[in-house]
Write a protein that binds this DNA or RNA. Structure first.
Length: 608
DNA sequence: TCTATATCACCC
DNA sequence: AAACGGGTGATATAGA
């Protein structure tokens, strides 16, 4: 099948206006849809939309749906209980693809002065559009919500229609440059995105609320208990105060090229080694760093975290959900808030060593493929080939081998992953705490053990620089530049193909009705009734394997799964201590509040 | 007082 | 010239 727009009986360009409150599902206000062949236009206000059991636009394969940032449209479809369309092209995704320059943010802004929104994309094609100011004022009117008078309704509908008009013209401008078969896969993914965004992640809202309400007291408590040197001013660290403490103690502290104090954790670690009296300051900084970013999580009234996944946000095609809103954005301890509802269960299913597998199979590197297929721990198996792990380790039971060669495995893992994005000996040495020579030897040994991968990778990087393009098998690509860092290109195919397989899997999973809460780069969080979770998990793993097989042209990747049943939480071992510390503080603060409330007198007033 | 920049910490 | 990939976002200080 090689569809082009000519093969669709109908081409519908559509846009909803909707109210989107943080954590809540979309609340549609109106829909305008324009059919390009017949010239028909539909204009529907919210009450008319709600009266419809299905979309007024045929959702079957004969009609193409065109939208800009299409997942938002499908969010409205789902809110209305409508079936999602089967054929979609998202002009945002196609615009991102067309302008996916391997350049920094500043450079990109210069090339796309109006940004990556509808206006920016339209401007790029020389289309005249309303000004951003007009757009903002209409947006404000919609966001204000509630009831709009007749005049406002007309204004909102006209605004919506003008976006549809812009999108239609953008479609005509972009259509000749679109790679249709692959664009339709990307479009199909936007429907999957909407399904995942609509489901969201179940949250222990009570704990979240208490933690949020008590966050300031907790923060100040940590500081009050530990800030002997008074380097904090309320909740803020003051460089100047810290600098004065250092002078008083006669300590020379490393500085950045800018002349400012180097306040990185690495530096603190080293310096505390020499001056243990500074340890509490380091500890406070660590604690406060871990507790940032959780207060703005978008939690809906039904206690579910819903955040825009922002598909196609990165150069490699990954999603870019806002870290402040998305529960998987902040530190891992925040996942303690993720809890299945009674009777339900969650499973976190992630690809096993996804990038390692992609590297091995794309390059057809014997050592990497065989290590992956050994069925053992990939790093132990590969380590044996590299010569870092003794061959006897392969005879041991995996968990025993992992424990016995813990240090070697850790170093090898860091070196293997690092080598796939150009980590140098100095960086590796720092990371694994060994000498630069040892780190260099390790990197060298890895390269010797997997010559096929390095030949392939070197060729891919050169080709990208030569042709100015690098692409995945499913058509995601980046436009390179003479300033593109070779290290970016080194990692690009691995991350970009990982992203492709996540998109394919997202489609299949959500279309089959698996309860996908969200994707997390190389993993899915799924939800099911407790007695169905094992089956759902097994099916998820099959689908993820199938998706990897399509992307890799045959070979498949494995996955690992962790199941959590009510009242469990999605916490890993490393973040549990901090979670417990925080809930401990919460408990203390709750108790002191309770004591305050039951002080004599407070309840002695008779009810009026 | 507001904004821009640099730095840092977190995620996969 | 540098050499740790792709991101988001908070914070402290410098600068307008």
């Amino acid at each position: 099948m090689n569809p082009t727009p000519d093969e669709f009986r109908e081409i519908w360009v559509l846009d909803f206006e909707f109210v989107a409150n943080p954590g809540e599902r979309a609340n549609p206000v109106c829909l305008v849809a324009h059919e390009l062949r017949s010239g028909r236009t539909l204009r529907l206000w919210r009450d008319e939309l709600r009266a419809l059991k299905e979309s007024p636009i045929p959702t079957g394969p004969g009609s193409l749906h065109v939208a800009f940032f299409a997942s938002a449209e499908w969010g409205c479809y789902l809110a209305l209980g409508w079936r999602l369309p089967e054929r979609i092209v998202d002009l945002f995704a196609e615009h991102r693809l067309a302008t996916n320059y391997a350049l920094g943010k500043d450079h990109r802004r210069a090339l796309l002065p109006l940004g990556d929104g509808l206006l920016g994309a339209a401007a790029l094609h020389g289309l005249d559009v309303m000004t951003a100011v007009e757009k903002d004022s209409c947006r404000d009117l919609i966001i204000a919500g509630g009831s709009w008078n007749a005049e406002e309704r007309i204004r909102i509908l006209e605004y919506c229609e003008s976006d549809v008009d812009t999108t239609s013209r953008l479609f005509n401008a972009m259509a000749p440059g679109i790679d249709w078969p692959r664009a339709l896969i990307r479009g199909r993914f936007t429907a999957a995105v909407a399904r995942m965004e609509a489901r969201g992640v179940p949250i222990d809202r009570d704990t979240f609320n208490r933690l949020r309400e008590r966050w300031n007291p907790i923060k100040l408590k940590i500081i009050a208990e530990m800030d002997r040197f008074k380097v904090y001013d309320g909740p803020s660290f003051r460089e100047e105060r810290f600098s004065r403490v250092l002078t008083e103690l006669g300590i020379r502290w490393p500085r950045l090229p800018s002349g400012r104090l180097n306040l990185g954790e690495e530096t603190f670690k080293t310096m505390v080694g020499f001056h243990p009296e500074l340890a509490p300051i380091r500890k406070i900084r660590q604690l406060l760093a871990e507790t940032r970013l959780f207060k703005d999580l978008a939690i809906g009234s039904d206690g579910r975290n819903r955040a825009m996944l922002s598909p196609f946000g990165t150069a490699t095609g990954r999603n870019t959900p806002g870290n402040a809103k998305f529960i998987f954005g902040p530190s891992a301890w925040v996942r303690g808030l993720i809890q299945p509802r009674p009777g339900m269960a969650l499973a976190y299913v992630d690809y096993s060593s996804q990038e390692f597998g992609i590297a091995g199979y794309l390059a057809q590197d014997r050592a990497m493929m065989e290590s992956y297929e050994s069925g053992r721990d990939v790093y132990l198996a590969f380590g044996a080939r590299v010569g870092i792990i003794p061959a006897e380790a392969m005879e041991l039971e995996t968990e025993i081998a992992k424990a016995r060669f813990k240090t070697e495995r850790k170093q090898l893992k860091a070196a293997t992953l690092g080598s796939q994005y150009g980590l140098q000996a100095e960086g590796l040495a720092r990371q694994i705490g060994r000498s630069v020579t040892e780190a260099a030897d390790l990197l060298e040994a890895i390269k010797r053990a997997s010559p096929g991968y390095w030949r392939w990778s070197d060729g891919a990087v050169r080709l990208a620089m030569l042709t100015g393009r690098i692409h995945t098998c499913l058509g995601w690509r980046t436009i390179t530049h003479r300033d593109t860092k070779p290290t970016s290109l080194l990692n690009w195919p691995l991350q970009a193909h990982g992203s492709e397989m996540m998109r394919l899997a997202s489609c299949q999973l959500t279309e089959e009705g698996i309860g996908v809460c969200c994707p997390i780069h190389d993993a899915f969080l799924i939800e099911a009734p407790a007695d169905e979770i094992d089956r759902a998990t097994a099916r998820t793993r099959e689908i993820m394997a199938e998706a990897s097989g399509i992307v890799l042209g045959g070979p498949t990747l494995r996955s690992d799964a962790e199941v959590v049943r009510f009242p469990g939480r999605l916490l890993d071992g490393d973040s549990r201590p901090f979670w417990e510390r925080l809930t401990g503080y919460l408990h203390e603060l709750d108790e002191s509040t309770t004591q305050a409330i039951v002080k004599p007198g407070l309840f002695s007033c008779p009810n009026p």
